[in-house]
């Protein structure tokens, strides 16, 4: 059996309150066509949405160039299926987590064409979390940047300036 081609690039563990988490930047390795990001065990000091930006080099691109769409399913008698979508957004909404017992946010992302200046950097996401109402929610969808450019990673932040208090964020390259 040949060696598998999922290669670790960077792993960041949050152990104290921090407003942002960055994967890539100076740690970015540009030799892969595809990348996987695994995020698990994320908690926040207030029930809030988690947002994501691409990195141009080492800086988060806060521009109106993000488009995304995903289907969110939640356990609720009031709200069940929701299509969350945006074009020309300043960031990519990827979910949330509450502060209830056992609450966390977890996801797996697949990134494509981040190293090709002629293509749109894009990705897909599979996500599960406990929402602000203490219910389980799950999402599946995709996102991209509407301007073709090289991107060198991702930055995650909590809406309205709250902080991540725990979690592991890991970036892998998928070898060819």
């Amino acid at each position: 059996m040949s060696a598998d081609k999922l290669e670790l690039i960077q792993s960041v563990e949050v152990t104290s309150a921090t407003a942002t988490v960055t994967l890539g930047g100076t740690d970015w390795v540009n030799t892969y066509d595809s990348y996987k990001v695994v995020i698990t065990g994320v908690s926040i000091d207030a029930a809030e949405e988690i947002h994501m930006h691409f990195l141009d080099n080492t800086n988060a691109q806060v521009t109106s160039n993000y488009s995304y769409s995903f289907q969110r399913s939640s356990v609720s008698t009031a709200s069940t299926e929701t299509t969350v979508k945006a074009t020309g957004a300043n960031d990519i909404e990827i979910g949330e987590t509450g502060t209830g017992t056992g609450a966390m946010f977890a996801c797996e992302l697949l990134l494509q064409d981040f190293n090709d200046a002629t293509k749109l950097s894009s990705g897909m996401m599979d996500i599960v979390f406990q929402n602000a109402s203490g219910e389980v929610s799950t999402e599946t969808g995709g996102f991209f940047n509407t301007t073709a450019a090289v991107h060198k990673g991702l930055q995650f932040e909590v809406e309205t300036g709250d902080n991540f208090t725990a979690g592991r964020f890991t970036l892998y390259g998928i070898g060819s």
Partner: peptide, 9 residues
């Protein structure tokens, strides 16, 4: 985890 609930997608 003994802190978080278990989550499966």
């Amino acid at each position: 985890s003994t802190t978080f609930y278990k989550y499966i997608w």
